[in-house]
Simulated assay, not measured.
Amino acid sequence: MKLRIFTEPQQGASYDTLLQVARAAEELDFDAFYRSDHYLAMGGTEGLPGPTDAWITLAGLARETSSIRLGTLMTAATFRLPGPLAIQVAQVDAMSGGRVELGLGAGWFEEEHSAYGIPFPKEKFGRLQEQLEIVTGLWSTPAGEKFTYDGRYYRLTDSPALPKPVQPKVPVLIGGLGKVRTPALAARFADEFNIPFASVADSEEQFGRVRAAAQEHGRSPGDLVLSNALVACVGRDDAEVARRAAAIGRDVAELKEHGLAGSPAEVVDKIGQYEQAGASRVYLQILDLHDLDHLQLISEQVRTQVA
């Protein structure tokens, strides 16, 4: 089981704060540093000092870290055109020496689109599918050949399909709880399938749908990495758990039911349940980005137990 750090900077974080967390995650031997792709805070917070762009952030981190993998849960397809997105990801991959992963989703938060003048189309799933076809198609086009695409939403003519990523294949993540179209899309394009904030039982059911879709598409179900994203709130004792829950405005009982909360032993046990359901990676949603002692505790007393 690999543990990864997942941040939500729209809730309030500067680039320097994210850099501190990414460097701490690297030093503490977490597998990857991920961030959300949002431009507006949620839950009534102000999100100061304001939003940071996911791929500009990862470009900076690519030069200021050395070994940890970097990615998004999830880049919003509504925010970017697929051709420029393929260029951005390939460039950041080169800047990192081949450590980038692309989580790509349809986009869902209408208010942030309105706040920053971004069109919010009614049909998002079809656009996501075309973006996946284009991004992966540009990267896989042999050097010296052209890429052309004539879709319903996007058209590319004689693209040189450059630049190429450093990695032979940038891992692509798709996620969600849709029962039909989402597993089918993952079967076609994903290297990893991620389930956000779901129970063990719901995860097991969705993983089963994804494995079945992969088989129908002619893939071995084992080809797909399966993962969960879950909020983390770990403490050495009940008082420390309560303090950390209060710092993020959450209830301890709710966190224990819906996330990874409690003592290191409790969290290790809960991660084991997700592993039995099929997950081999867990993205730990860290909401208090100034509590680096939290990361150290998780690394020393949870990560080492589940590795």
Rank of each mutant, 00 (worst) to 15 (best):
Y153L: 05
V172Q: 01
A86D: 11
G259K: 01
T78D: 05
G117D: 05
R219N: 11
M74Q: 09
F6G: 00
G98A: 05
D29L: 06
Y39T: 09
D288M: 08
L297S: 14
R80N: 14
R63K: 13
E275I: 00
G208Q: 13
I118T: 10
R155Y: 06
A94K: 14
A198I: 01
R69M: 02
E111W: 05
L85C: 09
I134L: 03
E101N: 04
L289V: 09
T7Q: 06
S140I: 01
E27L: 12
L260I: 06
S220M: 05
E27S: 14
T7G: 09
T17S: 12
V302S: 06
E111G: 00
T148I: 07
G262T: 08
L3R: 02
L85D: 11
E266Q: 15
H258K: 15
G208N: 13
K256T: 10
S114M: 09
A201P: 00
E205G: 11
V234R: 01
G151R: 01
A62T: 04
A25T: 00
P51I: 14
V100I: 15
G44Q: 08
V268F: 03
G44F: 08
Y39K: 06
A161R: 03
G175T: 08
V282W: 00
P82A: 09
D291W: 01
G60T: 09
S227P: 12
L73S: 07
T7L: 12
P183K: 02
G117L: 00
H38W: 09
S263E: 07
P9D: 10
D251C: 11
F193L: 01
V241C: 08
D53Q: 14
D93T: 03
L138R: 05
A307T: 10
H294W: 09
G43Q: 13
A143P: 02
F33H: 04
Y283S: 12
V200K: 00
L58D: 10
V241E: 06
S36H: 08
G97E: 07
A229W: 03
A265W: 03
R188K: 15
